[in-house]
Simulated assay, not measured.
Amino acid sequence: ARSKPLGTPLEIELISVARLADIAAADETFMEVAAVYRGDPAFNVARLVEELVQGEQVPLLPILRYKPPGLRKREQWEETWELQRREDAGETITDIPVPPKYKSSDFITTGGVRYWALRGKLDVPKERWISFPHCPGSDGTLMIAWAGYDHLQQTQSIATHYQTIKEEQGGADDPRLIPLLACIAELLPWLKQWHADLDPNFNLSMADYFEGFLTEEARSQGKTLEEIRAWQPPTAATRRRTRAAKP
C-alpha cells in the first residue's frame, strides 16, 4: 500500500483532469447544465471539463507562469516577503522595499492560458485550480488541486502524488518527481510562516516535517536543494524540416 506523508488527510489530494471529468459525468445537475451550455446533449464531457479547467488554472511554480521579466519581479517580491518575515520575528528592519507591479507581458500566454487575467498586477490568486504541468497523473492528464487548499494542504497533496509516482508508477527515476519537489520547496517558506506550531497529533511541526521530507528526497534524487529549486521545464525538441530529395 502507498505510504502517505505524515499528517495527510485522505480527502486532501491532487486530482487529474480526467478523473474530475468522471466525477462531473456522474453528477446529474452538472450534465443537465453542461448540455444546455454546449447546446448538445451528446457533448464530450472530458473535453468540456478540460476547457473549463484550462481557463481557471495557474501553475504553482513561478517558472511555469512568468516570462523572464516576470520572474525577476517575482524574486523582488520574495525578497520583500523574507524581510517582512524577519521583521515579524522581531528583527529590526530599517527598509522594506515596495516590489514592482506586474504587467500582462510578464506572464506566459501561450496555449490560451489566462494567468494575467487570473492574477493581475499584484499577482493575487483568483484561480479555481492550482496546476502541476509536467507531473501528469497515471491517465496522462494534467494534475490539479483546488485553489482553496491552504499551504499545508497543498504540500500534503503534492507529497502524496510524489509518493504514488515513486512507489506505484514510474519509480525513483520518474521525471515527474523533481518538479514535485520543486513545488514543495516553493511552499516551504509559507509552511514555516503559517504552520510552524507543534502539531499535537504528531508532536512535530509540519513545517519541520516537510523540510526534512524535502531534504531527504532531494538527497535520494542526487540533488541539492538549490538544484531542486532551480528546476526548469524541459525544452521542446527542435524539429528540423527535411527537404524532399530531387528526382
Results as ranks from 00 to 15, higher is better:
Glu51Gln: 15
Ile12Asn: 01
Pro133Gly: 03
Glu127Lys: 09
Ser205Pro: 00
Met143Ser: 07
Ile228Leu: 00
Ile15Tyr: 05
Ser131Met: 07
Thr109Trp: 08
Ala230Gly: 04
Glu87Pro: 09
Lys67Asp: 11
Ala172Leu: 11
Leu71Lys: 10
Leu181Met: 10
Pro68Asp: 12
Ala26Met: 11
Asp199Arg: 01
Ile108Asp: 03
Gln154Tyr: 14
Pro179Asp: 14
His134Ile: 05
Lys73Thr: 05
Pro133Ala: 02
Ala196Gln: 10
Thr164Cys: 05
Ala1Glu: 13
Ala230Cys: 05
Ser3Phe: 14
Arg241Asp: 10
Asp199Pro: 02
Ala26Pro: 00
Ile12Arg: 08
Pro69Thr: 02
Pro59Asn: 05
Arg219Phe: 12
Ile63His: 03
Glu56Ser: 09
Phe43Leu: 12
Glu75Tyr: 08
Ile93His: 06
Asp197Met: 11
Pro247Thr: 04
Gly111Met: 10
Leu177Gly: 02
Thr8Leu: 04
Ser157Gln: 03
Gly171Glu: 07
Pro189Tyr: 09
Tyr115Asp: 05
Ala218Ile: 01
Glu167Trp: 07
Ala117Ile: 02
His195Val: 02
Arg239Asp: 12
Gly55Thr: 03
Asp27Phe: 06
Glu87Asn: 15
Leu10Met: 08
Leu60Arg: 09
Arg239Tyr: 13
Gln163His: 14
Glu50His: 05
Arg119Asp: 06
Arg47Ala: 15
Pro125Leu: 02
Cys135Gly: 04
Ile184Pro: 00
Arg229Gly: 09
Thr141Glu: 08
Arg72Val: 12
Arg114Phe: 08
Thr29Tyr: 10
Glu32Leu: 09
Phe213Asp: 03
Ser105Asn: 05
Glu32Met: 04
Ala46Arg: 09
Tyr115Met: 03
Lys103Val: 04
Pro136Asn: 01
Asp123Val: 06
Pro133Val: 12
Leu188Ser: 11
His134Thr: 01
Lys103Glu: 14
Gln57Lys: 10
Asp27Pro: 00
Glu82Tyr: 10
Trp116Phe: 11
Trp231Cys: 01
Ala35Asp: 01
Ile184Gly: 03
Ser3Met: 06
Glu28Val: 13
Asn203Pro: 01
Lys73Met: 00
Thr224Arg: 05
Cys135Glu: 07
Leu48Tyr: 00
Lys192Ile: 04
Trp129Met: 07
Val124Asp: 05
Asp150Ile: 11
Gln232Ser: 11
Thr164Asp: 11
Pro62Asp: 04
Ala245His: 11
Glu28Phe: 14
Val17Lys: 00
Gly137Trp: 00
Pro68Lys: 02
Arg38Ser: 15
Gln54Trp: 02
Ser3Lys: 15
Lys223Ala: 03
Asp106Ala: 05
Gln154Asp: 00
Glu211Gln: 15
Lys223Val: 03
Ile23Gln: 15
Phe132Cys: 03
Ile15Val: 15
Arg38Asn: 14
Leu61Met: 07
Val124Ala: 09
Tyr66Ser: 04
Phe43His: 06
Lys103Gly: 12
Pro200Met: 13
Lys166Cys: 08
Glu28Gln: 14
Leu52Glu: 07
Lys192Trp: 12
Arg241Phe: 14
Asp173Leu: 09
Leu204Arg: 08
Arg239Phe: 08
Tyr37Ser: 11
Lys67Thr: 13
